[in-house]
């Protein structure tokens, strides 16, 4: 079995981000050796200028995507579709969840100063956030966290790659703040 060849085929057929656990189960190989091989493949793909595909890492998942350099040509080929970017309300809510996760809806509403039920539901439907349990407090409120789809949507390989709040604040000149 040529492991790299198999991995490439798997990622092509799956299309969406494919998790290490899934691959590990299929190939009956330990996760760490697959991770090692995939990380090797990432640099091989990305360094090869003749290739039109790259491998991207989102959390514990890997996905074949096209190269950014080729965007213009792909755009000419494809029909234009509706802009799939998120609304301001959705973006604000998502930011709070991303940085404060796991977080309750009440906390999100306290920060935004508006009701968020609809927005939260919308984000769940889009697969960007999910319920991750309940808080051990009166009323046992549901707590929310971001998903791997969130990472993919924003092109992040892990939550740790989120922009640093301090840096953003410095850029905007809003001054020193604690989170």
């Amino acid at each position: 079995m040529n492991i790299k060849s198999v991995l490439e085929s798997l990622m092509f057929a799956w299309g969406e981000p494919l998790s290490i656990n899934e691959i590990s189960k299929i190939l009956n190989m330990p996760a760490h050796s697959i991770t090692f091989t995939l990380d090797e493949m990432i640099s091989e793909f990305n360094d090869d200028e003749d290739r039109g595909l790259i491998i991207q890492k989102f959390g514990d998942s890997y996905q074949l995507t096209t190269k950014k350099d080729n965007y213009e040509y792909i755009q000419n080929l494809l029909e234009t579709t509706v802009n799939k970017s998120l609304s301001t309300a959705a973006m604000e809510t998502l930011s709070i969840i991303a940085y404060k996760q796991p977080v309750t809806k009440v906390e999100i509403e306290r920060i935004r100063g508006v009701k968020c039920s609809q927005v939260v539901k919308g984000l769940i439907d889009k697969g960007l956030i999910k319920e991750v349990g309940r808080l051990d407090k009166p009323g046992r409120p549901v707590i929310f966290a971001t998903t791997d789809e969130f990472l993919r949507h924003f092109g992040l390989s892990s939550i740790g790659e989120l922009p640093n709040i301090g840096d953003i604040q410095d850029d905007k000149g809003t001054g020193e703040l604690s989170s």
Binding site: S95, A98, Y99, R112, L156, K172
Partner: peptide, 15 residues
């Protein structure tokens, strides 16, 4: 609130 608003604008760029 402003902090998260700024962050969400930054995240928009990632999107």
């Amino acid at each position: 609130y402003k902090m998260f608003k700024d962050v969400s604008e930054e995240l928009k760029k990632y999107e």
